[in-house]
Amino acid sequence: MRNVKILIIFLMVFSIINVDNATSKPINEGSTYKLYFLGGQSNMEGFGFAEELPANTSNPPQNTMIFVGQMAFDNETHGGVGVWQPLTPGLGTGFKTDGTTNELSNRFGPELFFGLTMAEQSNDENVAIIKYALGGSGLAEGVGYSNWHPDFSDGAGINQYDNALKTLRNALVPSDLDGDGIADRLVPSGIVWMQGEADAESSQAAADDYRANLARLMGLLRAALRVDDLPVVIGRITDSGMSDDGSVMDYIETVQHAQQDFVKNDSCADYVTATNDLPYLDDGWHYNTEGFIRLGRAFAESMINLEQRCGHTE
């Protein structure tokens, strides 16, 4: 299993190289996009309601494209397929794609206002987002409805790490993102990660392992994108308190400390704590529309600040 995943990473690296060299035309004839990978579980998947958005968010920015990999549980084979499109609401939970066409939902996640804010602050630079997230997924082996641990294998041997790699590989194969007939160039520029609730809810052992599991996964994603010190923004998980004992996740403090420690010891990582006062839906797990608007903006502001010292815009 490990050797297969190493091969997948190699194929992804090859794909990224081919994006830069997919045409004999001079590279500056196409568009250059700053590329960001957004991943995690349900609060990255997105539960904001599109119909509650301000009217001016319905028009996609011309310089921002997004590829959302189809969400799939472990051992399902359809995960990671997708198609590039302009950034728009409807790419949250319930979104579906067959790799040819996209079926928008009525939900959105942090990707929307992350992309809008990055576009506003980009000084006319193009922005490309690749997103893969699945609600309830964990990092510790066997934790969650599905699992991100690189070594965890069950059934057909396909987990969320595999789906993320497949999403990246599929997204990086096309050479013409904007459909103008000219090959484009993608420059890996950052990772945004919103996950940890499954581990914080599962057990003390899963929470204790979160620091090592997070560091390993971020390292592997950086390797897949070929930048060892690629900027990484981590979203702090929070507890709504909507349970009989006042805590939805019994081991949340351990995971929060693990997230903070990872960022503290990585000079190219940042910790978004705007989640501390984001409003929740009545389910007690997911932020509401206002929460996802604020979260997306906070991720973008963190990334912009982080890029000033760790950005890679070759």
Rank of each mutant, 00 (worst) to 15 (best):
P279G: 02
P60C: 04
F47T: 00
R216Q: 13
L217I: 12
L87V: 06
Y161E: 01
S105M: 08
S146K: 05
K5Q: 07
Q256H: 01
L177C: 08
A156V: 02
W148H: 12
S24D: 11
L220S: 03
T273Q: 12
G144L: 01
A140D: 07
N159T: 02
A171L: 12
S153C: 10
A224T: 05
V173R: 10
Q259K: 06
E45A: 09
Q62L: 14
Q260W: 04
P174S: 09
D176W: 02
G79S: 09
P231V: 12
G179Y: 10
D74Q: 01
E141F: 02
I158R: 00
R236E: 15
D282P: 09
G196K: 04
L278E: 03
K5S: 13
T254D: 07
L278G: 01
D162S: 06
R216L: 15
M71D: 06
T313H: 14
N18K: 14
M12D: 06
Q85C: 14
A223D: 01
Y287F: 15
Y33D: 08
N159Y: 00
G138M: 12
N213E: 13
E29W: 01
M71V: 11
N3E: 12
L214T: 04
T100Y: 15
R216K: 14
G99T: 08
G99P: 06
F37H: 02
F262Y: 15
